[in-house]
Amino acid sequence: MNVYFWRRYVTHTDLKKTPLCAACEAAGGKMVDFHGWLLPVQFEGILAEHKAVREAAGMFDVSHMGQIFIEGKDAWAFLQHINCNNIKNEPGAGTYSHILTEKGTIIDDAISFCITPEKFLTVVNAACADEDYAWFQKQAEPFDVTVRNESAAWAMIAVQGPKAVETVNNLIPGVQELARFHIREIELLGAKGYVTRTGYTGEDGVEIMLPNDKIAALWDELLKLGVKPCGLGARDVLRLEAGYLLNGADADQTRTPYEANCGWVVKLAKENFVGKDALAAQKAQGLKEKLTAFVLKGPGVPRAGCKVYAGAEEKGVLTSGTYSPLFKGIAVGYVTADVAAGSEVEIEIHGRKVRAEAVKTPFYKNRV
């Protein structure tokens, strides 16, 4: 599978490394520059890793993700203010949401977990973790909260697939009882940490957060249990099949949740939150463009930047695209709002227009 869209293979040392970098290299990982981090794009191969996650269990080094802790009597009220979704404040519960600018555009999509009513953990995307933290600090001024960026102290492995949870249960007894989108404090390998049950692949799975010096031992234990190492290439195919956004490509500070086809995370009925007025106005006015999914009807691999046409009229441009072992060429992009599911379009790939159909996401939907 062509992986040209990842940055060049690298051997230099000017990139940030996760605590699992050496373990990934020892497992045969082909390392690339991903937003300034040295991460594996693949191990055995994208197709094999895709198959492992769809049929059994695969693991990903996601230690580059950020962890921001919010504590204090106003912790929940603060998160309600900076998120457009309603944040759950029951201990253990997590909520996916978008963090917005005053204009209603997306700074990040993140998951906030309630550890206690006065202590929350927000897991943010790596590329904007520092920006998120600065925004949190700025917005926290009127609230009785303490915001701590502990991203450098934590490492994380995501284990995904239909056999992922039962496999991890060998290391963390009782994890099978953890509800989806929930968190639990754990003690593992002599250290305190957290386990969550979310995922970015469309399959069931868990994420295990441990201090940096313990994560390599966890990697080794998972290898012994037969969990296959997987890289960024398979992760991108899996997440696109499942209809998840890639922050910085499908969602950024030029787009709102409504435009990103995530209107379900916007709760205009709740008390004021950052960006609420702008979103209310956009909803009233209607959308000009919207993130839309496409399946190719001919050969080709769609990529970000490919233009979308209806006849001679250019309708928009792709933000993500790939070859899927399940669906062949799939993609999403921002096109004019009149391009609805079922519409016939053409996608220009290397100067050649390929027929495609607009479809609803997700492309792939499992039972989770």
Rank of each mutant, 00 (worst) to 15 (best):
V10K: 04
H12P: 01
D14K: 15
D14W: 15
K16L: 15
T18D: 07
C21P: 02
C21I: 10
M31I: 04
D33I: 02
F34G: 00
F34K: 01
G36L: 10
L39Y: 10
F43C: 08
F43G: 08
G45A: 12
L47H: 02
L47M: 03
A48V: 04
E49K: 14
E49S: 12
V53G: 03
A57N: 00
G66L: 05
Q67H: 08
I68W: 00
I70P: 02
E71A: 05
K73C: 01
F78W: 09
C84Y: 10
N86W: 11
I87M: 06
N89D: 12
E90S: 12
A93N: 10
G94R: 08
T95D: 07
S97H: 06
S97A: 06
G104T: 09
T105A: 08
D108K: 14
D109N: 14
A110W: 05
A110T: 12
F113T: 03
F113P: 03
A127N: 10
A127G: 12
C128K: 05
Y133N: 02
A134V: 08
V145C: 11
I157R: 14
A158Q: 14
Q160V: 04
Q160C: 05
G161T: 04
E166A: 02
T167L: 02
N169T: 07
P173T: 00
V175G: 11
R180G: 11
R180L: 14
F181I: 11
I183V: 13
E185R: 07
A191P: 01
G193M: 05
Y194E: 11
T198I: 13
G205K: 08
V206D: 12
I208P: 11
M209Q: 02
L210F: 01
K214M: 05
L222G: 08
L225K: 04
C230G: 01
A234Q: 09
R235N: 12
D236I: 07
D236H: 15
V237K: 05
L238C: 04
L246I: 14
G248Q: 06
G248E: 03
G248L: 05
T256R: 05
T256W: 06
T256C: 06
G263Y: 00
G263F: 01
W264L: 04
A269H: 05
K270C: 02
L279M: 08
A280H: 13
G286A: 09
L291F: 14
T292R: 10
G300F: 06
V301C: 11
V301N: 11
C306A: 14
K307M: 13
Y309N: 09
Y309E: 06
S320A: 07
P325Q: 03
V335H: 09
A337I: 07
A337T: 07
V345T: 03
I347E: 01
H350Q: 14
K353H: 15
K353P: 08
R355N: 13
A356V: 06
V368G: 09
